[in-house]
Nucleic acid binder design. Sequence first.
DNA 1: CGTCTTTTGTTATCAGACGCACAGACGCGG
DNA 2: CCGCGTCTGTGCGTCTGATAACAAAAGACG
Lengths: 245, 245
Amino acid sequence: MPNKNSAPPQSPLENFILAALPKLDFARLLPDLESIDLPLGWVISESGDHINYVYFPVSGIVSLIYDLEDGSSSEVALIGNEGMVGISIFMGGESMPGTMKVQSEGSAYRLNRKIMKREFALNGKLQHLALLYTQALICQTSQTAICNQHHSLEQQLCRWLLMSIDRLHEKRMDITQELIATLLGVWRESISHATNKLESDGLIACARGSITVLNLHKLQARACECYQAVKVEYDRLLPHPKHSQ
Amino acid sequence: MPNKNSAPPQSPLENFILAALPKLDFARLLPDLESIDLPLGWVISESGDHINYVYFPVSGIVSLIYDLEDGSSSEVALIGNEGMVGISIFMGGESMPGTMKVQSEGSAYRLNRKIMKREFALNGKLQHLALLYTQALICQTSQTAICNQHHSLEQQLCRWLLMSIDRLHEKRMDITQELIATLLGVWRESISHATNKLESDGLIACARGSITVLNLHKLQARACECYQAVKVEYDRLLPHPKHSQ
DNA sequence: CGTCTTTTGTTATCAGACGCACAGACGCGG
DNA sequence: CCGCGTCTGTGCGTCTGATAACAAAAGACG
């Protein structure tokens, strides 16, 4: 379990869902919002775990990963400060298949299960936002499904890079090619091959354990339509305060 | 728009969600439940359509299909009488990407958008069931995503056949290999190749425009784990009255 | 500065599925 | 029973990515 409150604290309002709450609702929740670190690699919950908190990231990225019996896996959704982790609490299942893993360190605020359920039952803005976010999540996993079926590894990689920098709010990410391969469910050597091509074309710069996007526009052109499709639906459904873009 | 009430009418209680409602709730909804045919190929809603009804199938199969710009497509979820079509009504988005298409004819009961929203807001059993079903749907699309990434065409075909007969409640389905290929997002010739192998191994029998499952047990062994994984989660989350399996 | 670990790059082979061309087979309508 | 359209089977070249074995480079650390 990670320490609480070690990094410079960010406001809960950095999370788009919390920020979109009416002032009264937010004020009522504030005393129960507990700040917590999201250290790299932390497994927030594993398949079938009875989860006790809903997490509202304010920075970093959490991945929803499905595992197979043979040890391979694939990321089916990326969650940043636009969303939340632990939807099974208000959806009623109490647990979900799949692993919630911190893929890029950051921090979050979390809300106790009971309090979340109480708030959700009020039929207020939080319920509305939580359900809208869940619908957006369905869109993301669905698009991932068809993308995995039809698009090349390079296209998928471009999509993944774009989705990641959208959630990191910066162009450089600290991640090994090995980990990207795990998340995309492909071979490490294939990622190496793809990053080399992208690098020699000047779209990205690779270093040990980090990738920097140099030309966002060209990267979008190289990615499949899935990136844009999901982004459009997220923009339609979800609130995007100030630095929306 | 299909005709209403032409086939021999089935009870709304054939839909597992409606059947799981408390008697009082069901009685209140009954006058507003409108019987409607689901003819083969009918597109209930297309990407972005503002949908006006929630459909509760009592027979047949509805597919959630995502399309790509190049004309290819993939089915990301199968919906039968265990579920419902039109979740965006209560999730708040009012519309969704993806096409809802009748893949196997049957019939359904539908509920007007306003009435569904009113009932959902009561925080009663219908809300609970609708959200649980939505969570199950997320599981299905997620598993589809990883399945598309990792498993062979034959494994995916077996999974699809099994999921279809589960929803049809019979071993024979009327469908062309061409259509299966479209749904799985693969080549028609590849499906032909796979069905031939399965047929020569005695698992299925193929005829023009129909496939019959002969050996369910062997077919399960040949399918990937994804079929079982989704089934387990559906059984955990959803009600399954009487003829549950 | 040299060793050790981690990460990344290179190459070759192989399997699955695409993509195309075409042949055959079934069944419906006349 | 014949013709035609639809559906299905087959073969083969091509391409992507899996698989494996290995080389090189970049930091970490003493």
